[in-house]
């Protein structure tokens, strides 16, 4: 009995935010002290998603493009920088330096780099936000991928070269497949980092790059909980999809 109760409680605890979000999005006239909404309707969903000038879907597209680009650039760059770190004579120092961007909250980092973004004429543009997000995501991917470049991986590469591979072939046919599980994790996590960012994006975009996360915060600021819940459900879709696609790796038992 006890062995079933604990997993059930844990499951409920994990599912509760999602259930509440769903209820908030569909609830009509849900007021204190009612435990559950008296009525349900799709009015809020229809009004947000069915609007002719659909800002929310445009925000979803912007967020997908921005977070996807950050994930690919940060992961690719992180793999290359991590390799350079592994080969460096002072790899431990460089690795420690990779933690520096995390000494600052993203909003403060954005405030510090804002003058440079303005001088580059990138303030309020998607490219400016992309650069800011990369400053956080690239060191993160580097730290995540640093453990891949072991001496054994170097031996794999050398072996492939003596078996006839050029450097590019050794990378594509040997290193990339070996790194793939870590690359997948790095892609996933840097995507989430950019996807859910609010502070840095809001500062660097000066309100012009309205990502989905920025829009959710705006609805929350307007105390419009139903619209905020619908937008949040949309916000959860890509991470949920990524989690589902990543489930073989996440559910794999350690050997």
């Amino acid at each position: 009995m006890r062995s079933r109760l604990l997993p059930a409680l844990l499951g409920l605890l994990l599912a509760l935010p999602f259930v509440l979000l769903g209820l908030l999005a569909l609830a009509e006239q849900w007021r204190w002290p009612a435990a559950l909404p008296p009525a349900y309707s799709l009015t809020a969903v229809r009004s947000l998603l069915g609007a002719t000038d659909n800002d929310l879907l445009a925000g979803l597209g912007r967020s997908l493009l921005l977070a996807g680009t950050v994930a690919v650039l940060a992961t690719g760059g992180g793999l290359a920088v991590a390799r350079a770190l592994a080969r460096s004579t002072r790899s431990a120092r460089w690795e420690a330096a990779s933690y520096l961007p995390y000494a600052l909250p993203p909003v403060l980092l954005a405030t510090l780099i804002q003058p440079f973004i303005i001088r580059l004429h990138l303030s309020g543009s998607g490219v400016g936000v992309l650069l800011g997000l990369l400053l956080v995501a690239l060191p993160y991917a580097t730290l995540l991928l640093r453990s891949f470049w072991t001496p054994q991986v170097a031996e794999y590469e050398s072996l492939a070269r003596t078996l006839g591979c050029t450097s590019a072939q050794a990378f594509r046919r040997v290193l990339l497949p070996l790194a793939w599980p870590r690359l997948r994790t790095a892609l996933f996590q840097t995507f989430l980092l950019a996807w859910f960012d609010f502070g840095l994006t809001n500062v660097l975009s000066v309100g012009k790059v309205r990502t989905l996360t920025v829009q959710v915060f705006a609805y929350v600021g307007e105390a419009n909980s139903q619209l905020a819940a619908v937008a949040s459900l949309l916000l959860l879709l890509p991470p949920a999809l990524l989690l589902w696609l990543n489930r073989p790796a996440l559910l794999r038992r350690p050997e």
Partner: peptide, 15 residues
């Protein structure tokens, strides 16, 4: 370069 030598290096580990 190593790929043009037709000389194969085998490590202690089969790799």
């Amino acid at each position: 370069p190593p790929n043009e030598r037709q000389v194969v290096y085998l490590y202690q580990e089969p790799l």
